[in-house]
Design a protein around this nucleic acid. Sequence first.
DNA 1: CTGAAAGCGCTTACAG
DNA 2: CTGAAAGCGCTTACAG
Lengths: 320, 320
Amino acid sequence: MEAIAHAAGVSVPTVSRVLSGRGQVAPDTRERIRRLLDEQEYEARRSSAGRSTGLIQVVFPGICSGWETEHVRGIEQVAQEAGVGLVVSVLRRGEALRRGELMRTDGVILAATSGVYAAGARVPTVALDPVTGAAAGAPSIGATNFHGGRAVTRHLIGLGHRRIGLVTGAGALRCSRDRADGYRAALEEAELEEDPTLIVEGGEFTHRAGLVAGRRLLAHGHPPTAIVASSDTMALGVLEAARQRGVSVPGELSVTGFDDLPASRWSSPPLTTVRQPLQEMGRLAARTVLRLAQGRAVDHQDVELSTRLIVRESTAPPGS
Amino acid sequence: MEAIAHAAGVSVPTVSRVLSGRGQVAPDTRERIRRLLDEQEYEARRSSAGRSTGLIQVVFPGICSGWETEHVRGIEQVAQEAGVGLVVSVLRRGEALRRGELMRTDGVILAATSGVYAAGARVPTVALDPVTGAAAGAPSIGATNFHGGRAVTRHLIGLGHRRIGLVTGAGALRCSRDRADGYRAALEEAELEEDPTLIVEGGEFTHRAGLVAGRRLLAHGHPPTAIVASSDTMALGVLEAARQRGVSVPGELSVTGFDDLPASRWSSPPLTTVRQPLQEMGRLAARTVLRLAQGRAVDHQDVELSTRLIVRESTAPPGS
DNA sequence: CTGAAAGCGCTTACAG
DNA sequence: CTGAAAGCGCTTACAG
């Protein structure tokens, strides 16, 4: 504060008045001081001076589906048990989190969010469903996406499918690539050749993206008999595309999801999918930031919790 | 702090050491001071002395469905625009929020949560989907639930239904009662007699509750030809009950929901429902707490945003 | 509208 | 393990 006052050519009390909003300050003086506070990313000692704020924060790239909800449930449980509050923030891709926002909490969980934007703020950080290559040094928590992708694809191959489409997820996330790699591994071990025209980039884990990709695959000259979607919401979009085209599921087309959100049980037909323990991942992420916030060491740097194939009614042998 | 030190028979620095956790304090001294801090609900000046914390808080009775997600999306938008953080908490019915948790924020949105537990804490409060009779004095934000309940029931009557079942929602919430009253009003204006055996208390807005209530109504000696569920998740449960019993929807049974969650479009058949502007309600609630937090007056004490009937494919004339 | 001075709540070496 | 004293960051009357 003294530095700011000096730089602005005013006394400390004047800076204080600007900060608190109490008392009279000339408009241009106020403006000059504000600019300096911004530039120097000034944070009141009160909130950053090593004292606990009793808060942890989770950052999502958006709140669109049940995925975030499940994570929040898990994280909130642990936060409540630990007596700390949970701040939920949305940081759209490309946006930078203002530094003050991070500094006001004891730790941050970056859920499917790039750590780059948080690099400067020295706040304990954990990556939940980490973005490729980001959040260097931060512990990460994911699921065995490769195994999950391989397991659903094997399931379809086991049913007799030979032309299996893939709708990929958000490209920046490691989980998307791992699922696609699992798909490829299953094809390879069954000695099925990969057909690049059956792989559609979904781009985002949304119903809309699944609908668009599903339409494209169904319009294929020699369409697949099964489609592996990279998330449940995408799979619901693929189901919608099938419905619109009058293609019956699972009779003419098998469809699979990934996540096992509650909605996957409520769709019709109920989705065959890969269960990710989203709540448990949230709980583990929360426990991990809390450990870091206490200055304790973490047991494991990078953890993947296991996924499990859930067979419901959206898959069947081809042409059944 | 001086008062605590005096009561504990120690000096101010000793109390400070207990608070910060730094430095040595004899176990029994620490215990005695801790107890006094708890008793006197001590809050560091830093966070409660009228200064803004830059945080608002939303409290839910649980995080179970897309309902909370939609509210959070709206609230988060406004919070982000205003540059304040959003704390999300869960307060199960009957639990009391610890006072410190509320005091650390500038304002609280009680979403379907009783205000009783927040009464002591002098924090600006807004009720979102207010609980009956609670949160005295706090502005409230809801939807035109009565009109919505009447509109769907009229829709079913218009299709020719005469035996219409009702699955009620969470009894403590005003929205549940209003929806049921709308149902009754529609029956009455059509001069249909209310059959109490066709009204089942759902108790909670869950898939499970809808499934159980749906089973009961379908096992009725003279079953209804249509069922009005008090929420989308409940309606999805009713659909599941129909599927399990081999009752086709909408051929043999029409089913309606309430909310218009994304999942209502993805079910099969897609649900006829009543749209509530959940995100907008969240935004309004957030703007209202922020106004209160600034000490400004609120435009309207109690607001109901309008609902709208959305006709999809889960309703049809009886026996079609 | 601003600063010098006093003050407030809390923390931090230091001494015992 | 604890307190007296100094100190830190910030705020608040007060004077001009």
